[in-house]
Design a protein around this nucleic acid. Sequence first.
DNA 1: AGTGCGATTGACT
DNA 2: GTCAATCGCACTA
Length: 205
Amino acid sequence: MAQKENGLYVRRIQRTSLPVDTIELAKYLIGKTLVHDARAGRMSGRIVETEAYVLGDAAGHAYRGLTPRNKSLFLDRGHAYVYRAYGLHFLLNVSSEVRGVGAGVLLRALEPLDGIPLMRLHRGQAPLIDLARGPGRLSQAMGIGLQHDGLDLCAAGPLWLGDSAGPTGEIGRSVRIGISRDTRRLLRFYERGIPYVSGPKRSRV
DNA sequence: AGTGCGATTGACT
DNA sequence: GTCAATCGCACTA
């Protein structure tokens, strides 16, 4: 079902289109659209930065097995895993493997498209560049919280993934940001030359 | 039962 | 550059 979004028609990504592999999904999601149809209106953004938290990853929340908090990581690919970080920020992941395997892709930054005034209402008068630049800011701008944990992003519902064109340029790769274990692997992906990407400046080019 | 620490951000020196 | 906010969960005992 096509829905008008930012002047373009974007439809939901079907689960069968999602790669059944965490790293492949992290790359696939670059350039796709995240949409939140909230009561106050639609918010959407182009995904420009992701991180893969793979099977057996000591930095991943699923590393020590299934718990009440991380159970959404074990859902079939394409479900939301939302958790609270540092007691105050919400971070959004997309589960990334078959049901029963705990792994996910963290969404770290968006280029805002629809509902920018609404995002500003959530975030304050931040520059457009900073509205959803960083995983905590992304969730705050989009109005995402624990109530979205476990939602199917490929089904009818308020939060979904839109089938936009994909990356316009090259996909860059770097180490992940802010972790203390398994720090060496290049599991962060971002669209090169895009100002909406988070992290230190040298890891944005 | 107590402790320590984040997949972060914003304010401040 | 440093640091506090703030809380669920893993880990120790």
